[in-house]
Write a protein that binds this DNA or RNA. Sequence first.
DNA 1: GCGCAGCCTGCAAGCGCTTGCAGTCGGCTT
DNA 2: AAGCCGACTGCAAGCGCTTGCAGGCTGCGC
Lengths: 356, 356
Amino acid sequence: MQKLTIYEVARRADVSISSVSRVLQGKPGVAPAKRERVLAAVAELGYVPNVLARGLASSRHGVIGLVFPDLDDPTTESGHETLLYSDEVIRGAERAARATGYAFLIMATHGSGGREIARTVGGRVDGLVVLARSLADPDLAELAQRVPVVLLAAGRRARGTDHVSADNEGGARAVTEHLLETHGYRDVIFAGGPTDSPDARARFAGFRTAVAAAGMPAPARPAVRGDFSEAGGHHVAAEILRRPALPRAIVAGNDQIALGLAADLAAAGVAVPGEVAVTGFDDIQLARLASPPLTTVHQPMRELGARCVALLLERLAGDEARPRAEVLPTTLVVRVSCGCPAEGAIPVPQAAGRPL
Amino acid sequence: MQKLTIYEVARRADVSISSVSRVLQGKPGVAPAKRERVLAAVAELGYVPNVLARGLASSRHGVIGLVFPDLDDPTTESGHETLLYSDEVIRGAERAARATGYAFLIMATHGSGGREIARTVGGRVDGLVVLARSLADPDLAELAQRVPVVLLAAGRRARGTDHVSADNEGGARAVTEHLLETHGYRDVIFAGGPTDSPDARARFAGFRTAVAAAGMPAPARPAVRGDFSEAGGHHVAAEILRRPALPRAIVAGNDQIALGLAADLAAAGVAVPGEVAVTGFDDIQLARLASPPLTTVHQPMRELGARCVALLLERLAGDEARPRAEVLPTTLVVRVSCGCPAEGAIPVPQAAGRPL
DNA sequence: GCGCAGCCTGCAAGCGCTTGCAGTCGGCTT
DNA sequence: AAGCCGACTGCAAGCGCTTGCAGGCTGCGC
């Protein structure tokens, strides 16, 4: 199969390549009869336009990109600390891009090398979604002036770019209120994430608001900190177990911390949620299946990804709007780890009526 | 910032664009002094070659693509049946591609529309990794003659393409043997996946081998079937609970089935693994955190993705080799759901020595 | 019957970079 | 000193498609 170009199609349909091009792009100004001939030729030949040539001529890639942080140590195959969060966002974004005919490129960043990576990907896409903390500020800035960028969950730092985030503060407030009001716990502490994470800060702020609203003194900073990973949870657990007295409930900065923490508490003989209640944030899949099922705050991860792509497309459409910031709602998901009854934690369809 | 082309760099360095091009590609035949000047100009200007033009001229994309099945119903936001498997493979492949300077494109397929999708992505990449069952055979065939394809876990159907898969049969045999020999269970059954899945078939074959080797009659087909999803597990559970007698152990086709199944059994009052032991396959992250932690067979998912990319690159390098099939080893991961003691199921670092 | 607005068409000029090829030059071999 | 060779250089021809523009036709108003 030798190369099949627009010339071949034009010859076959007995028209000029201009007309073929116009038909293929759905542009007006081509007589119906001729349009038919072109379409027929395209079908017979199985012609697919060369995206490279098309892109070069129109200076459009037809590709949306997404940059996410790869927190794993690339030298190990452990892989278990994966940010499931990114995977969900990626899926949502991919779907949104595909639905509008764009191809979807992803690139993970791992600490250094961000500059090169940003250049590589920057020149290949029409627009870029950048997940929080996957790129250093200067790299991001350089990238942003080459191509439209939408920042996801980044605590609005870069100027001139659109932002999308989840309502971290509201979610943290809701889960803390649940602990405080529904359960009536008194001694509730916050086990935070990295200091430089805007998400972590916003969640802590929500926690403080709830505590203050309950008429209690709100701490100035998280009682403990740890990475947004299971290892971070282990670290937090160690810190807490070292104390003279255990808190009644712990609001963790995210699900991974909560899971690692809960596992260690249980292993140390502390009943969860009996003695210490634990809540998470994100609602990753593990949260639902963990033991006990984790009470957490759901972030609409796929939707976040999809909204980022949507904003990008709007900007590409050219409406030269000023930077926008969109905040998607989060929802409290009550399961067991807060002390609530297990009811419905794990769906049990038609398991009833067992005839044994 | 107006557009910056190779001409600008050439002028700045006072050379021809040919030389700039050669320097940028690291080709020989450019005097050292001149090479320096070019590099300096590139750095000062912050020049980044236009990938579209480069691609058009050299007919190379610099992009590796991956097509995976999106089993979710795109109209819901549920997202919980996600194939974690794909996510891991994607990460592994992305990393391998990035490490060799290639950009990485992903595209999900969802039932129909595969043809269009295949065309879209086929024209944008230098090589493609296709996960099992994401594309119909004819679409795959068409795609394969446009661009090099490596099939992952597809039970070698397409001719002329490379294949990579995990040792499904060996893994299933190992886990079944564990149940049969270590635990001495007699009544062990296989709860399979979809009939058309090569993976499911290979696993069942391994199961049969082990059963036969233990001197027991091997069934001709799986005792029950279900999708490779949690819902499939629920279905399997319902089937099994409907029987007059429960089996002593169930070898599930994959982790999701095992998890859904185990949850329903437990909800129906059947002790797992006390009354019925359950094992999975894949070793997705959920398997480790589930309750009880799932004994399963580990597939090197990231490595599978990475190997696919590696094969693709070798083929692109031009060694015109005949199609190869690579099988990566799987490993038995013993946790609790088979009846083994919990020891080490959840790592408990420094949780000891609690001073309370 | 004539003029003009529209609608179609195809021409041709790029888009920015790669690469085969011919030409230039200094240095060495005879 | 003439001839050659090899290392460099830059020219120019694409790669395949988009698109502004000018020209040709048709139909309608006057």
